[in-house]
Amino acid sequence: MNDVMWYLSRSTGIVAGVLAVASLMWGFLFSARETGTRRRPAWWLDLHNWLGGLALIFTIAHLVTSVLNRDAGIAIASVFVPGIASADRLALAWGVIATYLFATTVLTSWPRRLFSRRTWRIVHLSSVVGVALALVHGYQMGSDASARLFRFGMLVAVAAGTYTLGVRLFGVMAKPRKPSRQ
């Protein structure tokens, strides 16, 4: 039973990571208006929202299975409070913080009109930090972190995320007249 949870915690962790990176990419590309002509921007935004929500759901599955895997010795409290874990303290803390950031991002996105555009965007962009932390967490903590394929995937994820960030930043610099209605 523990072993099943162990397998699941790893696979959900990986899938959550992929979803989070994908959501990040779709978000940047949408905001950069680099959505091509094949798909409407609305398609990108819609998929972005969905990927973000899924990332949170898989993250929750990941942390639940991590706790259920008794062998890992992860106390419930250490899932909520970063930095109190008895082992792998930092690695786990990154995961916990990332989870909070994802949750905030997703939960502020549905009622986003309750916030000013600026506030919302700052909150929303914190998810970028979340994605970075989650990747560090997976890298430091994962049983598979030493596997070639895992590292390769990590590299691809980082490269792809950085690329879209670049596209977005480049867009900001190229057209300073970014329409940001308040």
Binding site: Y7, L8, S11, V15, L19, L54, F58
Partner: peptide, 14 residues
């Protein structure tokens, strides 16, 4: 995306 995620989770676990 949903399908892929679920299938990958199961597949990876297996």
């Amino acid at each position: 995306a949903l399908g892929l995620s679920i299938v990958s989770t199961g597949g990876l676990a297996a």
